[in-house]
Write a protein that binds this DNA or RNA. Structure first.
Lengths: 190, 190
DNA sequence: GTGTACATGTAAATCGTTACATGATTCC
DNA sequence: GGAATCATGTAACGATTTACATGTACAC
């Protein structure tokens, strides 16, 4: 339901072809809404049928294999503007790693450490990319209102990644303390 | 892909009927993996066909309208154990609120405040529920290894909600400062 | 003229949401 | 016997993923 608006938002910032959009969804936009090129092509076609975007006119009919540039139409801007003030409920949580850790706790399976370590590593990579973007685009600059708001969105990603990494560290500490039980309580089976 | 294992994890902790599972997914389990009763019934049937769970035998054939209790089989426990050590990549992010704020920044639409305020309110409610569970089940108790790990999973939810709420507050502060521009730089249109 | 990158698209399968259907039990 | 609740499902649709298909441009 939101892919439609993520595309409209992207086209508001800059007109693009389908593949350019797909690349932008692999970078900046994809940091808060991910989408594959198949999804993007299909959704662009729907948006065109709905009159919210149009292809920038080029000489000759559009053909397969040829880049097709899309731009947002006034109706698209209106639809996007209306959506940004919608009070939708947040999406329900689905975090596989939390399921894994809870299942491992029930099963007494210390091997879950591998899954947590991997998750930590991936999130550390993502955090590095965010921090680099922050340095490159926002730090040590005079930002206008739009710039400050864009930075806040990036900051949301940074905050989430840092929270996640710290949590992974806490789980890893607990797992390791279970492997070397120095607790007075836990001396069950010799 | 993970619903299957979320159900196996739930059945590891306790055998349940479909509706009992649905209720548990509305409470504790749903705090990290949400699922509707329709999804759960469909998945339970698949798990039964795959030989990972079985219905607890009762006198007479199972009929519609009659509760049907499921328990995990050894094959189910093995499958769950194997999955908990999988090094899967985390799910791509899809956060509609971040798209809204970024779109509103591009459009210069202060009305997005309504969406942020609503999001903050919902997440504050969720945080309250988590904190109550923490008080009721974990605080002021001597926890064993499993208990400490269960608490860490709940802590993940608490951390995420707090991070989200703080971020919403930062966005609201920025939005309000834009409505009353006391900045020396931003005095463009009188 | 062949391979590689660019570019747009199709198809099938799975997952998730929404609305509805069917039957049993209990309370009044 | 009627309403409310418990309980198990079906159906249709939309969103997402994965694999594949088709065509152009350009370097070698």
């Amino acid at each position: 339901m939101s892919l439609k608006f993520a595309i409209l938002a992207a086209l508001t910032e800059r007109s693009s072809t389908g593949l350019e959009l797909a690349r932008r969804f692999d970078r900046s936009i994809g940091y808060f809404w991910s989408a594959s090129h198949q999804q993007i092509y299909r959704e662009l076609e729907r948006l065109r049928e709905a009159g919210l975007v149009s292809t920038v006119s080029r000489p000759g009919p559009p053909e397969r294999g040829q880049p097709k540039e899309f731009e947002i139409l006034p109706a698209g801007t209106s639809a996007l503007m209306a959506w940004t003030i919608n009070q939708d409920d947040p999406a329900p949580m689905r975090e596989a790693l939390f399921v894994k850790v809870r299942a491992a706790a029930a099963l007494g399976n210390p091997g879950v450490e591998a899954a947590v370590t991997h998750d930590r590593q991936i999130h550390a990579q993502i955090l590095s990319r965010y921090e680099e973007i922050d340095r490159r685009d926002f730090q040590d600059r005079d930002l206008d209102a739009q710039g400050r708001m864009q930075r806040l969105v990036l900051q949301a990603g940074i905050d989430l990644e840092r929270t996640r990494i710290q949590w992974c560290d806490a789980v890893l500490t607990e797992l390791r303390s279970q492997q070397q039980p120095n607790h007075e309580a836990d001396a069950s089976s010799t």
